[in-house]
Nucleic acid binder design. Sequence first.
DNA 1: CATATATGCTTAAACGTTTAAGCAAAATAA
DNA 2: TTATTTTGCTTAAACGTTTAAGCATATATG
Lengths: 376, 376
Amino acid sequence: MLKYNQSHKNYIILIIKTNAVYLLKRLSKYIKNLNIKKKTTIKDIANVLNISPAAVSKALHDDSRISEKTKKAVKQVAKNLNYQPNHLASALRKGKSHLVGVIVPRTNSNFFSSVIQNIEEELDKEGYNIIITQSNESYKKECRNIDTLLFTQVDGIIASMANETINLDYYEKIKSKGIPLILFDRGENDLNVDYIGINDYDSSHMIVEHLVQQGCKRIAHIGGYKRTRIFNNRIRGYIDALKKHNLSLEDELLIESNLTIEDGREKMSQLLALKNKPDAVYVAGDYAALGALQILNEQGIKIPEDIALVGFGNEPFTAMVTPSITSINQHSAEIGKQAAKTFLEHAKKSVVKQQLNKIILDAELIVRDSSNIKNS
Amino acid sequence: MLKYNQSHKNYIILIIKTNAVYLLKRLSKYIKNLNIKKKTTIKDIANVLNISPAAVSKALHDDSRISEKTKKAVKQVAKNLNYQPNHLASALRKGKSHLVGVIVPRTNSNFFSSVIQNIEEELDKEGYNIIITQSNESYKKECRNIDTLLFTQVDGIIASMANETINLDYYEKIKSKGIPLILFDRGENDLNVDYIGINDYDSSHMIVEHLVQQGCKRIAHIGGYKRTRIFNNRIRGYIDALKKHNLSLEDELLIESNLTIEDGREKMSQLLALKNKPDAVYVAGDYAALGALQILNEQGIKIPEDIALVGFGNEPFTAMVTPSITSINQHSAEIGKQAAKTFLEHAKKSVVKQQLNKIILDAELIVRDSSNIKNS
DNA sequence: CATATATGCTTAAACGTTTAAGCAAAATAA
DNA sequence: TTATTTTGCTTAAACGTTTAAGCATATATG
């Protein structure tokens, strides 16, 4: 029983029967909550229903050892009190953060943005969230990103390496911590981790084949850095495809580039300065291809009649510019999905039984105006 | 003392003096660590130095009540054992995750990607990490993103709303939880939260003024949804600027659009079907402007001589297409920085003393070929 | 000299959740 | 009937960190 006695206008005196002490304990906690306006916890639910916090936790997770009746009650109270589980606490206890780090060179490319979106969708199904970081093609930034992600206790990292990255120490660091590492697009064979990418070698073959069919005989290649696996594969594919079609490989037609717009302009100018100009240019990246296109347009060179142009990556702008640029579609959605799935496999399997996945997807050539000689 | 006795080839017998029991305890923990290969914790460091975990924690945080000698020792041991603080534990204890959620309609736009990058850089300085989520312009996805971020226990949310978003319940949910919410670009006055954006009204004035200067008399506007604040402001600016220059506002020249490429094409076609065609079109988004440009090019209409074209947002492709598109630069870097700073202010200040920031930045008109009549 | 203050630590509890272990009571099997 | 299993919970510890409170010891102050 609880007596109320307004003995003084500024005080309230409560007279509580001794056996109500336990109630008072609950009440005092409730009052505390009122003041600080704390978030409701499992304990609060437990107090309301007069069961243990453990039972509440199990009920919320549909443990088989909890009665349906209790489960229903718990869920109802949880809803009423607007209970939101504290992710940090459960992550700490379970030793899993349910966060996955993603590192990309940049997000403002359609390829990466689409990969990210698909990673996210796939992981979301299993209750994982992703933390996206951008390296801006900088090795230093990439290292900081890795540290940040490790600090945030991510359960895994999905990454595409910066152009600059040669030193793999930081990636070894991830591996040494036993955190699943999955690379996509820009990977490294030496690291010996899971990898998802397209068949760059075959893609180069497709491009050269297409250009040969269009009647081109002097096909130049503005490639990426040879030391980066994907660009090396594109170069090898280019060289082998030339051989296959009995075209000679000429040193002056094979140029290494960082594949920015600016460098695309420069390398294209370089090609135009040759005595014996090419009749086709295959650029290993769309942005550089755009730079090349600008130079060609500026110099009044007809595309594709004088020089045909092919890019790589199928960035949306390839379809927007004039003339539209033929390019390779990398199936970004599939790459993202596979990367996520590969991570999930690691997360589910025991630490011991691990095997490497190297997933190589076929790419697709999107023929546009810049190389469509016969119909132009 | 510790005696070693190889009595059996498969066993090792250790004879330990009784007073070494306490050492054994430490040793057994060490052995355990060896087997399970656990991460080193503050406790490990404490054990090595024979001090309390509390002292270690304080030493690592440069607490004034810890001697320099101890600090040095702790830091050295921490380095030796490759100690990485467990962020989850400290976040749980401190009630702060040091994570900030970011919601954008999409990341593959230069504007958003640049904003994000600057938010990240600014927050990184103060030890915050960001979790990026994309709404893909979908209200449903946006709601899920908010739930995800709240679940991850973010300390704040910086968001730009999806086009679809009209119902503000989910944003109210953030507010009601006392989590700082900062909107940028796409905001809502009704929400009454911090906002960082550009002066859309003035920007429209600048555009109209520029077109008038180029000699245009019938200026059309393909605008965004009227209900969205920024697009409404652009429309108001357009209308008022027309008045200011004594041009009549004609209903058929003011069109509402979702501002995608496709809709840009459609709305431009609609304008071209008019008996009395416009001599300039101001499109409230670059993508729709691109669609408009495609239609104009396809129909052989000269830009800017027949019809001048202006976009909004200064997406990189506006400089890439032919002719290049005049557009408004939104100072994405500054918006990102200010958004981050605004959050940090909230994070530092006490919950009680809060005041709203509405930061409106001036934008910049980048004149390109599509509206440069006099020099073309 | 006694008292006050500063220094350098320790102890113990807390953050909110999960989970191994355990214990009655109920249901089932022998 | 008794033994066994199942059901439905509780207790208590743990995850790794931080921090309020406390306690000596050393130093400063009057």
